[in-house]
Computed example of a mutant assay.
Amino acid sequence: MAGRRKDIPKGMPNYSDLINPTLEALQALGGSATINEIYSEVINNMHLSEVIIDFPHSDKSSQTEIQYRLAWARTYLKIYGIIEKTQRGVWAILPEHKDLHHINVDDCVNTVRSLSADKKDTHNDPKKDNNLEDDGIEFPDENKPWRERLHNILLSMNPFAFERLAQRVLRESGFYEVEVTKKTGDGGIDGYGRVKINGMFSFKVAFQCKRYSGSVPSSDIRDFRGSLTTDIEKALFITTGSFSKPAQDEAMTPGKIQIDLIDGEDLINRLAEFKIGLTPVTEYEIDEKYFLQI
Protein backbone atom coordinates (compact mmCIF):
# COMPACT_ATOMS: atom_id res chain seq x y z
CA MET A 1 0.00 0.00 0.00
CA ALA A 2 1.43 3.38 -0.96
CA GLY A 3 2.33 5.80 1.77
CA ARG A 4 0.16 8.72 2.70
CA ARG A 5 0.46 11.73 0.40
CA LYS A 6 1.77 14.95 1.92
CA ASP A 7 0.26 17.38 -0.59
CA ILE A 8 -3.41 16.74 0.20
CA PRO A 9 -5.27 20.10 0.33
CA LYS A 10 -6.34 21.38 3.72
CA GLY A 11 -9.96 20.50 4.42
CA MET A 12 -9.97 17.27 2.40
CA PRO A 13 -12.48 14.98 4.19
CA ASN A 14 -11.09 11.77 5.63
CA TYR A 15 -12.63 8.46 4.62
CA SER A 16 -14.53 8.31 7.88
CA ASP A 17 -15.90 11.82 7.31
CA LEU A 18 -17.62 10.60 4.15
CA ILE A 19 -19.40 7.53 5.52
CA ASN A 20 -22.47 9.26 6.94
CA PRO A 21 -22.66 11.85 4.12
CA THR A 22 -22.74 8.91 1.68
CA LEU A 23 -25.58 7.28 3.60
CA GLU A 24 -27.45 10.59 3.81
CA ALA A 25 -26.97 11.15 0.06
CA LEU A 26 -28.48 7.76 -0.70
CA GLN A 27 -31.46 8.53 1.53
CA ALA A 28 -31.96 11.91 -0.16
CA LEU A 29 -31.84 10.22 -3.58
CA GLY A 30 -34.58 7.75 -2.70
CA GLY A 31 -32.51 4.92 -1.24
CA SER A 32 -30.48 4.13 -4.36
CA ALA A 33 -28.19 6.02 -6.71
CA THR A 34 -25.34 5.76 -9.18
CA ILE A 35 -21.79 6.65 -8.16
CA ASN A 36 -22.04 10.00 -9.95
CA GLU A 37 -25.33 10.84 -8.24
CA ILE A 38 -23.85 10.07 -4.83
CA TYR A 39 -20.76 12.12 -5.67
CA SER A 40 -22.78 15.18 -6.72
CA GLU A 41 -25.04 14.99 -3.68
CA VAL A 42 -22.14 14.67 -1.24
CA ILE A 43 -19.98 17.48 -2.63
CA ASN A 44 -22.99 19.80 -2.76
CA ASN A 45 -24.11 18.96 0.78
CA MET A 46 -20.60 19.31 2.20
CA HIS A 47 -19.91 22.55 0.26
CA LEU A 48 -16.48 21.35 -0.81
CA SER A 49 -14.16 23.80 -2.55
CA GLU A 50 -13.02 23.41 -6.16
CA VAL A 51 -9.46 22.83 -4.89
CA ILE A 52 -10.63 19.76 -2.99
CA ILE A 53 -13.05 18.57 -5.70
CA ASP A 54 -10.48 18.72 -8.51
CA PHE A 55 -7.44 17.37 -6.62
CA PRO A 56 -6.28 14.19 -8.46
CA HIS A 57 -5.79 10.93 -6.62
CA SER A 58 -2.67 10.06 -8.61
CA ASP A 59 -1.21 10.21 -12.10
CA LYS A 60 -2.09 6.52 -12.51
CA SER A 61 -5.79 6.95 -11.78
CA SER A 62 -8.69 8.63 -13.55
CA GLN A 63 -10.23 9.48 -10.19
CA THR A 64 -9.95 12.59 -8.09
CA GLU A 65 -8.95 12.15 -4.45
CA ILE A 66 -12.48 12.81 -3.23
CA GLN A 67 -13.88 10.20 -5.64
CA TYR A 68 -11.32 7.71 -4.34
CA ARG A 69 -12.22 8.40 -0.72
CA LEU A 70 -15.93 8.13 -1.49
CA ALA A 71 -15.21 4.69 -2.96
CA TRP A 72 -13.77 3.71 0.41
CA ALA A 73 -16.81 5.10 2.22
CA ARG A 74 -19.11 2.96 0.06
CA THR A 75 -16.90 -0.07 0.69
CA TYR A 76 -17.12 0.38 4.47
CA LEU A 77 -20.90 0.76 4.33
CA LYS A 78 -21.16 -2.35 2.18
CA ILE A 79 -19.01 -4.54 4.42
CA TYR A 80 -20.81 -3.14 7.46
CA GLY A 81 -24.05 -4.45 5.95
CA ILE A 82 -25.84 -1.15 5.26
CA ILE A 83 -25.72 -0.87 1.46
CA GLU A 84 -25.27 -3.13 -1.54
CA LYS A 85 -24.10 -2.77 -5.12
CA THR A 86 -26.30 -4.14 -7.90
CA GLN A 87 -25.04 -5.76 -11.09
CA ARG A 88 -25.91 -2.53 -12.92
CA GLY A 89 -23.53 -0.55 -10.74
CA VAL A 90 -26.24 1.10 -8.64
CA TRP A 91 -25.70 1.43 -4.89
CA ALA A 92 -28.74 0.87 -2.69
CA ILE A 93 -29.58 0.87 1.00
CA LEU A 94 -30.61 -2.60 2.14
CA PRO A 95 -34.35 -2.90 2.92
CA GLU A 96 -33.79 -3.50 6.63
CA HIS A 97 -32.00 -0.14 6.87
CA LYS A 98 -34.36 1.90 4.66
CA ASP A 99 -35.01 4.41 7.48
CA LEU A 100 -31.38 4.67 8.62
CA HIS A 101 -29.79 8.10 8.13
CA HIS A 102 -26.82 7.95 10.50
CA ILE A 103 -24.48 5.30 11.86
CA ASN A 104 -21.72 5.15 14.45
CA VAL A 105 -18.63 5.65 12.29
CA ASP A 106 -16.22 4.27 14.90
CA ASP A 107 -18.20 1.05 15.14
CA CYS A 108 -18.39 0.78 11.33
CA VAL A 109 -14.63 1.20 10.88
CA ASN A 110 -13.75 -1.16 13.74
CA THR A 111 -16.16 -3.80 12.43
CA VAL A 112 -14.71 -3.60 8.92
CA ARG A 113 -11.22 -3.98 10.32
CA SER A 114 -12.16 -6.91 12.52
CA LEU A 115 -13.70 -8.68 9.52
CA SER A 116 -10.58 -8.23 7.41
CA ALA A 117 -8.57 -11.43 7.17
CA ASP A 118 -5.26 -9.60 6.87
CA LYS A 119 -6.00 -6.85 9.36
CA LYS A 120 -3.16 -4.92 10.89
CA ASP A 121 -2.88 -3.31 14.30
CA THR A 122 -5.87 -0.97 14.26
CA HIS A 123 -6.30 0.00 17.89
CA ASN A 124 -5.95 3.68 17.09
CA ASP A 125 -8.91 5.99 17.28
CA PRO A 126 -10.38 5.93 13.71
CA LYS A 127 -11.10 9.66 13.89
CA LYS A 128 -7.38 10.29 14.32
CA ASP A 129 -6.44 7.99 11.46
CA ASN A 130 -6.54 9.68 8.06
CA ASN A 131 -5.33 6.52 6.35
CA LEU A 132 -8.48 4.41 6.70
CA GLU A 133 -7.40 2.28 3.77
CA ASP A 134 -4.82 0.75 6.10
CA ASP A 135 -7.38 -1.66 7.51
CA GLY A 136 -6.42 -4.91 5.84
CA ILE A 137 -8.54 -4.31 2.75
CA GLU A 138 -6.23 -3.84 -0.19
CA PHE A 139 -8.57 -1.84 -2.42
CA PRO A 140 -11.98 -0.20 -2.13
CA ASP A 141 -14.75 -2.20 -3.75
CA GLU A 142 -14.69 -0.58 -7.19
CA ASN A 143 -10.95 0.17 -7.36
CA LYS A 144 -9.57 -3.22 -8.28
CA PRO A 145 -6.05 -3.31 -9.80
CA TRP A 146 -7.30 -4.07 -13.33
CA ARG A 147 -8.95 -0.66 -13.51
CA GLU A 148 -5.63 1.09 -12.94
CA ARG A 149 -3.91 -1.06 -15.55
CA LEU A 150 -6.68 -0.41 -18.05
CA HIS A 151 -6.51 3.33 -17.38
CA ASN A 152 -2.78 3.31 -18.16
CA ILE A 153 -3.44 1.37 -21.38
CA LEU A 154 -6.08 3.88 -22.47
CA LEU A 155 -3.67 6.75 -21.81
CA SER A 156 -0.97 5.16 -23.97
CA MET A 157 -3.26 4.41 -26.93
CA ASN A 158 -2.74 6.05 -30.29
CA PRO A 159 -5.22 8.97 -30.45
CA PHE A 160 -6.85 7.54 -33.59
CA ALA A 161 -7.21 4.15 -31.92
CA PHE A 162 -8.79 5.80 -28.89
CA GLU A 163 -11.32 7.50 -31.17
CA ARG A 164 -12.17 4.12 -32.75
CA LEU A 165 -12.62 2.69 -29.27
CA ALA A 166 -15.03 5.51 -28.43
CA GLN A 167 -16.83 4.76 -31.68
CA ARG A 168 -17.28 1.12 -30.60
CA VAL A 169 -18.52 2.13 -27.15
CA LEU A 170 -21.09 4.49 -28.66
CA ARG A 171 -22.33 1.81 -31.05
CA GLU A 172 -22.70 -0.65 -28.18
CA SER A 173 -24.59 2.07 -26.28
CA GLY A 174 -27.22 2.33 -29.03
CA PHE A 175 -25.76 4.98 -31.35
CA TYR A 176 -25.85 4.42 -35.09
CA GLU A 177 -24.25 6.03 -38.14
CA VAL A 178 -21.20 6.63 -35.94
CA GLU A 179 -18.24 8.02 -37.85
CA VAL A 180 -14.82 9.27 -36.80
CA THR A 181 -13.43 12.35 -38.50
CA LYS A 182 -9.97 12.35 -40.05
CA LYS A 183 -8.68 15.22 -37.94
CA THR A 184 -7.39 14.99 -34.40
CA GLY A 185 -5.64 17.13 -31.85
CA ASP A 186 -7.38 20.35 -32.87
CA GLY A 187 -9.76 20.60 -29.91
CA GLY A 188 -12.71 20.18 -32.23
CA ILE A 189 -15.10 17.43 -33.21
CA ASP A 190 -13.70 13.89 -33.36
CA GLY A 191 -16.81 12.19 -34.66
CA TYR A 192 -20.54 12.13 -35.20
CA GLY A 193 -23.37 9.73 -34.55
CA ARG A 194 -27.11 9.51 -34.16
CA VAL A 195 -29.12 8.22 -31.23
CA LYS A 196 -32.84 7.45 -31.12
CA ILE A 197 -34.90 7.92 -27.96
CA ASN A 198 -37.82 5.55 -27.33
CA GLY A 199 -37.70 4.51 -30.97
CA MET A 200 -39.16 7.87 -32.02
CA PHE A 201 -36.92 10.88 -31.60
CA SER A 202 -33.45 10.92 -33.11
CA PHE A 203 -30.63 13.38 -32.50
CA LYS A 204 -27.40 14.12 -34.29
CA VAL A 205 -24.57 13.98 -31.78
CA ALA A 206 -21.01 15.27 -32.07
CA PHE A 207 -18.35 13.84 -29.78
CA GLN A 208 -14.82 14.61 -28.74
CA CYS A 209 -12.36 12.11 -27.24
CA LYS A 210 -9.51 13.27 -25.04
CA ARG A 211 -6.92 11.12 -23.34
CA TYR A 212 -6.28 12.93 -20.08
CA SER A 213 -4.51 11.94 -16.86
CA GLY A 214 -5.94 14.79 -14.79
CA SER A 215 -9.04 16.98 -14.81
CA VAL A 216 -10.39 18.43 -18.04
CA PRO A 217 -10.58 22.24 -17.66
CA SER A 218 -13.55 24.40 -18.60
CA SER A 219 -11.58 25.87 -21.53
CA ASP A 220 -11.64 22.49 -23.30
CA ILE A 221 -15.42 22.38 -22.95
CA ARG A 222 -15.73 25.90 -24.37
CA ASP A 223 -13.42 25.04 -27.28
CA PHE A 224 -15.46 21.94 -28.06
CA ARG A 225 -18.73 23.87 -27.93
CA GLY A 226 -17.23 26.52 -30.21
CA SER A 227 -16.58 23.87 -32.86
CA LEU A 228 -20.21 22.70 -32.96
CA THR A 229 -22.22 23.59 -36.03
CA THR A 230 -25.90 24.50 -36.15
CA ASP A 231 -26.96 20.99 -37.26
CA ILE A 232 -25.63 19.44 -34.02
CA GLU A 233 -28.41 18.77 -31.49
CA LYS A 234 -26.43 17.05 -28.75
CA ALA A 235 -22.75 16.85 -27.80
CA LEU A 236 -20.66 14.35 -25.87
CA PHE A 237 -17.18 14.73 -24.36
CA ILE A 238 -15.32 11.49 -23.56
CA THR A 239 -12.11 11.45 -21.52
CA THR A 240 -9.86 9.05 -19.66
CA GLY A 241 -9.52 11.60 -16.87
CA SER A 242 -12.06 13.50 -14.80
CA PHE A 243 -13.88 16.80 -15.26
CA SER A 244 -13.12 19.81 -13.10
CA LYS A 245 -16.06 21.48 -11.36
CA PRO A 246 -15.81 24.52 -13.71
CA ALA A 247 -15.83 22.11 -16.68
CA GLN A 248 -18.98 20.42 -15.38
CA ASP A 249 -20.65 23.80 -14.87
CA GLU A 250 -19.60 24.97 -18.33
CA ALA A 251 -21.01 21.81 -19.92
CA MET A 252 -24.44 22.54 -18.43
CA THR A 253 -24.51 26.30 -19.05
CA PRO A 254 -28.16 27.35 -19.60
CA GLY A 255 -28.97 28.71 -23.04
CA LYS A 256 -26.12 26.84 -24.75
CA ILE A 257 -25.85 23.38 -26.27
CA GLN A 258 -25.66 21.00 -23.33
CA ILE A 259 -22.58 18.77 -23.39
CA ASP A 260 -22.86 15.35 -21.77
CA LEU A 261 -19.73 14.07 -20.07
CA ILE A 262 -18.19 10.60 -19.84
CA ASP A 263 -15.16 10.53 -17.56
CA GLY A 264 -12.56 7.79 -17.15
CA GLU A 265 -14.54 5.86 -14.57
CA ASP A 266 -17.67 5.94 -16.72
CA LEU A 267 -15.67 4.82 -19.74
CA ILE A 268 -14.11 1.88 -17.90
CA ASN A 269 -17.52 0.88 -16.57
CA ARG A 270 -18.91 0.82 -20.10
CA LEU A 271 -15.97 -1.19 -21.42
CA ALA A 272 -16.65 -3.71 -18.65
CA GLU A 273 -20.40 -3.73 -19.26
CA PHE A 274 -20.00 -4.39 -22.99
CA LYS A 275 -16.94 -6.65 -22.45
CA ILE A 276 -14.88 -4.61 -24.91
CA GLY A 277 -11.29 -5.81 -24.54
CA LEU A 278 -12.18 -7.27 -21.15
CA THR A 279 -12.89 -10.85 -20.12
CA PRO A 280 -14.80 -11.25 -16.85
CA VAL A 281 -13.34 -13.55 -14.21
CA THR A 282 -15.75 -15.29 -11.85
CA GLU A 283 -15.05 -14.72 -8.17
CA TYR A 284 -16.95 -15.41 -4.98
CA GLU A 285 -17.62 -12.74 -2.41
CA ILE A 286 -17.28 -14.11 1.10
CA ASP A 287 -19.94 -13.22 3.65
CA GLU A 288 -17.56 -13.05 6.60
CA LYS A 289 -20.35 -12.15 9.01
CA TYR A 290 -22.07 -15.43 8.18
CA PHE A 291 -19.05 -17.51 9.20
CA LEU A 292 -18.49 -15.46 12.34
CA GLN A 293 -22.10 -15.62 13.47
CA ILE A 294 -23.13 -19.18 12.49
Rank of each mutant, 00 (worst) to 15 (best):
G81V: 00
T253C: 04
V105M: 07
D59H: 04
Q248D: 04
S215V: 08
Q293I: 15
E50V: 15
S16T: 13
W146R: 07
K289P: 02
G226N: 15
A71M: 07
S156I: 06
I43N: 02
I83W: 01
M1S: 15
I153M: 05
K78Q: 10
S62G: 09
T86R: 02
Y290G: 11
L271G: 12
Y15M: 04
A117Q: 03
L26C: 03
I137S: 05
D260H: 11
K78T: 11
F175P: 01
V216Y: 03
V90E: 05
D141C: 05
P140H: 10
E283W: 03
R113H: 10
A92G: 01
V42A: 00
S61Y: 01
P254I: 06
G136H: 03
L170M: 13
K98L: 05
E84C: 03
D106Q: 10
L236H: 12
K289Y: 05
I153H: 05
P140E: 00
F243K: 03
K183M: 13
F291V: 09
G264Y: 01
D17T: 10
Y284M: 11
K182A: 15
G11V: 02
N104C: 07
L271K: 11
A25E: 07
P126A: 04
D287W: 05
D266S: 12
F162Q: 00
I276K: 10
K256L: 05
E265S: 11
N130D: 14
D121Y: 15
G188P: 00
V205W: 12
A33Q: 02
A73F: 01
I93G: 09
V42R: 02
N158V: 00
I257K: 05
K183L: 14
T111S: 13
R149H: 12
D59L: 06
I79A: 02
